[in-house]
Amino acid sequence: MAENNPTEVKDKSAAPAGNNGDGARTLLGVTIDPDEIKKKAQIDLDALKQPTKTEVYKSIFRVKHDQTARSRTLGVLSNVFLHLHPAKVNRDAVRYNFTWGMGGISFYLFWVLTWTGVLLMFYYHPTKVQAFRDILYLEHDVPFGKLLRNMHRWAAHAMVLTVQLHMFRVFLTGSYKKPRQFNWSVGVILLVLTLLLSFTGYLLPDDQLGFWAVTVGTNMARATPMLGHEGPFGPELGMTPFNDVRFALLGGSIVDANALLRAYIWHCIAIPGFAAIFMIVHFWRVRKDGGISGPAPIMLEKEIKPVRR
């Protein structure tokens, strides 16, 4: 800025030029000495070599990156993405063989599905005219569109599998027992939401596969006791194809445009929203219930205490 402009310096300098004859000038009371500037530049250059010492780094990370217990603890606790972890865990729980990592992998897959799903939304219209063509367009014209669609599909299949395996391991380690009873129930809701997410997505390509799968699936809703027009006591309660629970799901009496739109909204907004809320509760409770349940010391039969009621 002003430093580069000699005329301005001359005009505006309050002190006489040639400050003590050593070549330095003063601008608005600030000394401008080439050596001084060089020295300052050197400071900035040195800082670049040690980025972790800069104020910018410190303002972002706030914690030293070294091997002291304090830094490691603070590194986890002061990071919003990591702070769901405790600072320390059971030494045997970090091995693969206890949890199989299935809860974490399910969460990671949910994350992958969210990202690929949002990218797919850029290309997809939930209308009868466009939906199927959008898939063709994705497969043939969009750069990496096919990869995107494949990843979304396979990650969804994989997540259904890993969530079930997670439940299996939680059962076999007895991790649903006191004090984790409630978190198991939250988990069951997550399992149901995972299946529903996958199912609502099935219709969206608007092809024969999805259409008939959803037709078969929602036909069962006809038979809901009392709420379906073919279910026990349904007709007696005034249910018809045009006012029963299946009609509410499909937005009509057949799988058509309204069903596509409803599936889309459930799939992209409502169910992921619920799933995210329940996951927040789930992870929070894992922490609040004392962290991961084990591997815990074995308890013996003679140590059972009587029930307190």
Partner: peptide, 27 residues
Amino acid sequence: SITLDAPLEEPANPSLTMNPSKAPWYF
């Protein structure tokens, strides 16, 4: 995802029943 493609059948057609018409595998 690189080696296997997600399936895509013909466009939905209510007058042409798939046989067998199956739900997704987990159902």
